[in-house]
Design a protein around this nucleic acid. Structure first.
Lengths: 339, 339
DNA sequence: TTGTAGGCGTTATCAC
DNA sequence: GTGATAACGCCTACAA
């Protein structure tokens, strides 16, 4: 029953036709005219033997793997879950499968090899910090790849979201509530998303005629956010509101506020980028800016599928960005914390 | 510069040797005696041309893909991040790459095809609920696969953690603090992990000579946990402590407790399975049971690599399981909530 | 409507 | 020490 390997030849023999015929039937060759009964016989044989085309042979012949790759820094960052979902769905729509890997367990090297060896037809990179060596190599490889949610340093090959607009939305919400001393808990130094969000904060403050508040950088983790927020609160004139670059850091930042014996939103309002399920279950529920992450994944795959090796892409995805107001933001108490 | 495809033949021509020689050099064939200068020439040609072996051709020839698959229900569940990390590292150790996919974006079908077509050498399934049809098919496929963190219904092909012991540890912690009315916020009905954790709770209660407290099931999500906890609190004689089957549900459960105007741990103590970064940043920091998730991923790949198609595996991974006491558990106030 | 034949890039088994 | 040659399983002009 369990045959290790059923080939086209086995099916052909059973159906008493040539392998070529089986191949065309299996591939639904439109330019094939065949007697219904013959097709029946072939299909029956395929079913009976449990035949599945060997992908290696097929790829060797057609130089297409019907597979895309997505590489990211860390599965623990929940924003990637959403991106992956969109990318997987898009790949499935193209009749391909998406394979995902991270740099926590293994390096980018493995996925680069997949690409170099033609085992995947394209690679999506969601943040490959400090891998500029490999990136240069990638660019020499005459093969489709794209950065997701992050601009590529040398070549123009990326799709990003409008992080600047998201930041403005957040800051405008705080300004609308009456805040004037609005600090920024930024992302990691040099990270491209962090840069764009900081720029948005800066622009919105300027537009509102407000002085640029204090800014401190931190990794996109609770621990990073906690440390950064502590620094912000230690300042002589602490902010009445904070725009946090990422929801994970915000979780840590909230803890720092509690540690300091202060209350959110009475003493400090807080709004963060990226909306997660989690946000509405924090204490208090966190005001966030929702961005179209699944859409980003979807679009990335879509572009990969239709990209020529030397094309350049520099796209800011135009999708819905909205503020989800919850209970972590409120008008400032006059005088602010300590007043 | 950008050559679409450099083959063995190109290298052989440049190095003025036969393709066979190049192949042996590239593969470090130990049974090859070769003049050092020849090897030099070959290596130089490889470097100059940027040759990379074509994986399709190699797989066709050797019937090995050097690739393992891991399939899971949802990347948004953070416990999988840890499992993936271990699995990726183990695969890299075997000179393979691990590719991961989820059922949120596409179905299991794509990954089953990878396996059936020989594009991956084995498949790890971390929860494929309700896919029993595909599972049966998998078993007929004479190909290595394994369930992770979940027992397989028909065949014995799984590695799990000692969830029962984890549950006992949690309950014993609560009993040690003096709790007697210990409820259980269980996982989804029918989920295998949920079953094992419930069994542990039941056993620990019996061993402590305590009556089995109330139990209510919920999905492993904040929303599920919130609803279930609300139900538990509405009972005439609410528990003084809750053993929650999963950290995600616990986050929702904490919110329900706050909604009810109660305090953790004064009115209700709470302990949950699986330790995440996040846990120490909740309000209050959540007491958890840490399980060796990365180890589970590692072991899964290890077994896949050395499994014969008809072998059966039923392993309870023997790794460190420890209670991480934080501030969500404390001795009960005499009389309990409302007393 | 069906069959034939060549080759995709490797590796393994020989022979020289 | 090195080279020739035959598969691996499939696709696709082209021929019949």
């Amino acid at each position: 029953m369990k045959r290790a390997r059923v080939t086209l030849a086995d099916v052909a023999a059973l159906a008493k036709v040539d392998r070529a015929v089986v191949s065309r039937v299996v591939n639904n060759d439109p330019a094939l005219s065949i007697r219904p009964e013959t097709r029946e016989r072939v299909l029956a044989a395929v079913a009976q033997l449990g035949y599945r085309p060997n992908a290696a042979a097929r790829s060797l012949r057609t130089a297409r793997a019907h597979m895309f790759g997505l590489f990211l820094p860390d599965f623990a960052n929940p924003v990637y879950a959403e991106i992956i979902k969109g990318a997987e769905a898009a790949a499935a729509g193209l009749g391909c499968v998406l394979v995902t890997g991270s740099s926590t367990g293994a390096g980018l090297g493995g996925y680069m090899d997949l690409l170099g060896q033609g085992r995947i037809d394209g690679l999506l990179l969601a943040g490959a910090e400090g891998e500029s060596e490999l990136l240069a190599q990638l660019d020499r490889m005459a093969v489709p790849w794209l950065m997701l949610n992050r601009r590529s340093p040398a070549v123009k090959r990326y799709v990003i979201l409008d992080d600047e607009r998201a930041a403005r939305l957040a800051v405008e919400h705080l300004v609308g509530l009456g805040h004037r001393r609005i600090a920024h808990l930024a992302g990691p130094e040099g990270a491209d998303t962090a840069l764009r969000r900081s720029a948005g904060w800066r622009a919105a403050m300027r537009d509102a005629g407000l002085p640029e508040g204090p800014i401190v950088a931190a990794g996109y983790t609770p621990a990073g956010g906690a440390a950064a927020m502590a620094a912000l609160l230690a300042a002589p004139e602490p902010p009445t509101a904070v725009f946090v670059a990422n929801v994970a850091s915000a979780i840590g930042a909230m803890e720092s506020v509690r540690e300091a014996g202060l209350d959110i939103p009475r003493d400090v309002s807080m709004v963060a980028v990226h909306d997660l399920d989690l946000a509405s279950y924090l204490a208090p529920p966190l005001t966030t800016v929702r961005m179209p992450l699944a859409e980003l994944g979807r679009r990335g795959v879509e572009l990969l599928g239709s990209l020529k090796p030397d094309d350049s892409v520099a796209e800011v995805l135009d999708g819905p960005i909205e503020l989800i107001a919850r209970r972590s933001t409120a008008p400032p108490v006059s005088g602010g914390p300590g007043g």
